[in-house]
Amino acid sequence: MFKKTSAGAATGVVGALGVAVAGIVAACCAILVCCAGAWVLLGPVNYFGCGAERPDGIAEADLVGTYEAQDGAHLELQADGSLVATALVTEFMGESLNLSGPGEWSLQSAGGSQGDIRLRLTSDGKPRSHGTSLDISGTREQPWLYWYEGDPDVCHLYRFNKIA
């Protein structure tokens, strides 16, 4: 009878342990399903940035040159603070704007909330002007410029690579 009790007690402990493990596994699966569901509904959330950091010590002289976006848009930043934009399309208050033509640019203080480079451009060659900003990444020797398309947490960047 002692052996039967010991076996029964051992079976009871193993059974309780098995139930506890099964509960933990079920809880972990539920958490994974909830996280996956939230990701599908809300999109990915970026807690670590997009890997696009302003280079330390970058100056206006480092930024002078010609930049090209994948869609063929061009920005030419001049040393005197002037610029020429070609086929730069952006959206402002639900309206698509073709920002081609002359404008001005200026480097903003590091750590500001309004972007690294401030742009003032004409819209479709009309006298009204449009302001926007770009951020800087890359290196001082090979900077690239960008702005976010949509939610910054998703990291869709409209990127300009320096070509000259």
Rank of each mutant, 00 (worst) to 15 (best):
Y47L: 14
G138L: 06
T132N: 10
L134C: 03
G81N: 06
L32I: 05
D153K: 02
M93T: 10
Q142H: 12
N161E: 15
G37Q: 08
S113K: 13
F160R: 06
C28A: 13
D80N: 14
G43T: 04
R118F: 02
A59M: 09
S137V: 00
H130Q: 13
E149A: 14
R54S: 03
A9L: 15
E104L: 14
L75V: 05
L32T: 08
E95S: 14
K162F: 01
G103V: 07
D80R: 09
A10S: 13
L63V: 08
D151C: 00
G150R: 13
H130K: 03
V19N: 03
Q70R: 11
T132C: 10
C28M: 08
G111P: 04
L119S: 00
L99P: 00
V64N: 07
W39I: 07
P152H: 09
C35P: 00
E68L: 12
R140V: 07
S96L: 13
T5G: 00
V13G: 01
V21M: 14
G12R: 02
L83Q: 06
G125Y: 09
W105V: 02
S133P: 00
E95A: 14
Y158T: 09
K162A: 12
S100W: 09
S137A: 15
G101D: 03
D62S: 11
E68M: 08
A20Q: 12
A26H: 12
S123F: 01
Y146A: 12
